[in-house]
Design a protein around this nucleic acid. Structure first.
Length: 414
DNA sequence: TCTGGGGTCCTAGGACCC
DNA sequence: TCTGGGGTCCTAGGACCC
């Protein structure tokens, strides 16, 4: 009997940790964490003790004294993640990759070739296990939202198919936190009103949902309740913004470090933009203070920016503004730069020389000079590597809490 | 002895235009 | 002589996701 489920959500289990256990068999069955100062990923054996990604290493060790810290094999993560996606692509061209280790599939057109959703889900799981040595969970349902919830329920290393005839029975007893978009804050707000399960949420009047969750999320939950999720699986698009951030942790965030750090961040962001022939009109900085309170300041200019020096200057101005608005805060715990409103910038615009007083203006004297500098730096790096030439990298080299390879895994396609 | 780094989306107020 | 309604863009903050 057909289940009506044609959307799959495939999600590798504890991806980085599983890769380490696959590469080093002596680690299998043991609580491990990838990373050191901060836990980047934890195996299921470690998760049982409450160890989670993003947690500081000392806290994880306190929760799980036998925890083993391992260094990440980041290029392996990328390679294996890509290979998993290739396996998924063997079943349908309609694959929407959400992150390095997770994707939606629409198998509507594939069932006559491979069997129903349950069969395809099992084939995916078997192939990923046999060919790549990794556990992957799969959820199958009529909509993306349901498929995603199903894969979470299937974890670890399982398959859950939600037949369209049994969606309510499946959803109603589940905790609201499984709904995409409901995090800790919203979950708490709902709990205060006695709403803990998706069934209770679905039974709430539409107006109440909207006032509780906001218009957008309320509509989404209403659609979930009415089984009316119409989002389609679509190939992953390009990123709408590029950013970089640097946390100071417990190291001193001396004021004289602000500028070198901004230079370093701008260098990363602008370099990525140039590599993809992109530029952005809006620059946003975020300053986080001790106590996790953070403020943002942004500037939208007339011309798209991709020059390292120009981005640095704009970011410095914005950070100065943020700091003067919050003069009582004295300790900075994080700095971030992000560029949005992106546009394509296929070639250098060789326009008529323009007044040289606006470095942001492409074709102005200063703009052209910066373009030349940036591109020679990019050239040297292409030939000799990132560290061959760069901004204050010596000053900051021992400050990086997370390896660059890890950062790169999280980058989206520009 | 404190909380990484990459993103997306939503909300709300204000400026400005027609 | 005082003011409608709609739309777009920008800014700031916040929740959330992987």
């Amino acid at each position: 009997m057909p289940s009506g489920a044609t959307i799959l959500h495939a999600d590798l289990d504890a991806f980085y940790a599983s890769v380490e256990q696959m590469l080093q068999p002596e680690l299998r069955g043991l609580p491990i964490a990838v990373g050191g100062g901060v836990v980047l990923a934890a195996s299921y054996e470690a998760k049982r003790f409450g160890v989670q990604g993003g947690m500081s290493g000392w806290r994880a060790k306190r929760l799980c004294p036998d925890l083993i810290f391992v260094q990440g094999h980041y290029s392996e993560y990328q390679r294996l993640g890509d290979q998993v996606m290739a396996v998924l692509g063997d079943f349908t061209p309609l694959v929407q990759r959400i992150s390095i280790d997770e994707a939606f599939l629409d198998v509507t057109g594939s069932v006559h070739l491979f069997g129903d959703a349950a069969t395809i889900g099992e084939q995916i799981r078997r192939r990923v296990r046999v060919e790549l040595g990794l556990p992957i969970s799969v959820g199958a349902a009529r909509t993306k939202h349901l498929a995603k919830i199903a894969s979470q329920v299937a974890k670890p290393d399982g398959l859950v198919v939600v037949p369209s005839s049994a969606e309510r029975e499946f959803l109603d007893p589940l905790p609201v936190g499984l709904v995409w978009g409901i995090g800790p804050v919203t979950r708490q707000r709902l709990a205060e009103r006695g709403i803990c399960t998706i069934g209770q949420l679905a039974a709430s009047p539409d107006g109440a949902l909207r006032s509780l969750l906001g218009n957008a999320l309320g509509t989404k939950v209403g659609a979930l309740a009415a089984n009316d999720d119409r989002r389609r699986v679509q190939p992953t698009g390009r990123a709408g913004s590029v950013g970089a951030q640097s946390a100071f942790g417990r190291r001193d965030a001396a004021p004289e470090l602000i500028r070198p750090v901004l230079g370093h961040l701008a260098d990363r962001v602008a370099g990525r933009l140039r590599a993809k022939h992109r530029a952005g009109r809006t620059v946003t900085v975020r300053v986080r203070f001790a106590g996790m309170r953070s403020v943002t300041r942004s500037h939208t200019g007339v011309y798209p920016v991709c020059s390292t020096l120009t981005l640095t200057e704009i970011a410095e101005r914005l950070v100065d503004k943020a700091l003067s608005d919050h003069a009582t805060e004295y300790q900075i715990s994080l700095l971030a730069i992000s560029v949005s409103n992106l546009v394509d910038q296929p070639v250098l615009q060789l326009e008529l020389p323009l007044p040289p007083d606006d470095p942001e203006r492409p074709g102005s004297r200063i703009g052209a000079a910066r373009w030349a500098i940036d591109h020679s730096v990019d050239d040297v790096r292409r030939k000799f590597g990132r560290s061959a030439v760069g901004y204050a990298s010596v000053v900051l080299s021992d400050r990086r809490s997370v390896p660059d390879e890890f950062r790169e895994l999280a980058e989206h396609e520009l």
